[in-house]
Design a protein around this nucleic acid. Sequence first.
DNA 1: TGTACATCAGTGAACGCGCGTTCACTGATGTAC
DNA 2: TGTACATCAGTGAACGCGCGTTCACTGATGTAC
Lengths: 223, 223
Amino acid sequence: MGRAGGGAAGTRTGRVTPAAVRPARVRARKGDGDLLRDEIVAATEALLVETGDAAAVSVRAIADAVGVTPPSIYLHFADKSELLYAVCEAHFAALDTYIEAAVAGAADPVGALARRAKAYVQFGVENPEHYRILFMRPTDTPVGSEVRLQRSGPYGHLVEAVEVAMAAGAIPQGDAHLVATGLWAVVHGVTSLLIAKPDFPWPDVDLLLDHLLRVQCQGLSQI
Amino acid sequence: MGRAGGGAAGTRTGRVTPAAVRPARVRARKGDGDLLRDEIVAATEALLVETGDAAAVSVRAIADAVGVTPPSIYLHFADKSELLYAVCEAHFAALDTYIEAAVAGAADPVGALARRAKAYVQFGVENPEHYRILFMRPTDTPVGSEVRLQRSGPYGHLVEAVEVAMAAGAIPQGDAHLVATGLWAVVHGVTSLLIAKPDFPWPDVDLLLDHLLRVQCQGLSQI
DNA sequence: TGTACATCAGTGAACGCGCGTTCACTGATGTAC
DNA sequence: TGTACATCAGTGAACGCGCGTTCACTGATGTAC
């Protein structure tokens, strides 16, 4: 290494080196400007997955991945945070879709809750960087903001599922919000620990989750 | 704002502006160089608490807080990550001490587990930035590394407490590691969600934790 | 059918800044003789 | 008791770099007449 430490700044985070040869990009036709927008979102998502850290994904790297110059980003997004917002929005919808698909067709309400829990953890483990952005970082974008969390998709559906289980008598009547946040805490605990400490000697994930769900179900029915 | 966007880079993260007037610092006496080391660690910890983000704490800001120039940092730490390591080490020990103090004198083994859980959550809620560094970030320093987590302090003590409860017949004999990781997931889930989404309409924390512990205890005893 | 023109997608170069780190140095302090 | 000297704590200036963002621009494309 040379005299100064500039190189070290580059290795500080898992920064992405620009592709040496970028794919030749054809300029969008007039009126098709939004095509680039979608490409930018897709590239940003890919880079987030690659680095696992939003701070390590630079506007330059995104532009390079798309095969475009940095200023082009600003034709479609006011600034970097608006771009990240768009990406998170997509993630959030994806989580909801994923869970609802997994839970479709479940027979009994408690079984449905278990499926829901497993799907949640699975989504997080399969998409750790997405999960990290959604639930493990300070809320620096409006997505994942608290009101959104409460009203929309995943959490709203969980509360409904708890209410269904209560109505069916599968678990005792009670505060559905309390029970739902409790369940959320459990699945989030598993998911986020697995992501944050991947090399800890965890028990088998299915075993751990089965254990916790069994305990939860037993415990909930005994309250 | 002027033409160029340099200022925006400064607002990207919660960066700390150098104190306009730094306290006059007297140079350590010969042989007392380690005094500065301690001051650096303390200042770094304070800045971490202030910003809640290790990436936002720069060597310059640390040096400024201590009242010293940046190169002085390197008299005591090989690089920035070694400094962060030292800070985390202190945090880790503090968590263990905190929990053991809370649990001292507990009568029954299950009550001890509950106290342990409550102390864990309380530590996290009272020291969110410390907690974030220890358990909510990728392991970029050796502290919080997996082997350490397993062997040392908090987790080791939890496993022991579970084994005691099992030996006493308070909870069924079984895989203590499994039960311990399950409990850890529960308390971590609560703690990290409270930290990551502080404005979500959580139920009362004590209520939520009591609920979860009751469910866990009921469930564990019924397995 | 031809053409002037407005619109649009995207570029090239630069801005000011903060970063981690290194270097050659200064000056105070303790110690050996 | 005095003094030369090694040691030590800390400094001032700079390095190369990557960052988000802005500006004036280029050139292709669709459209009105």
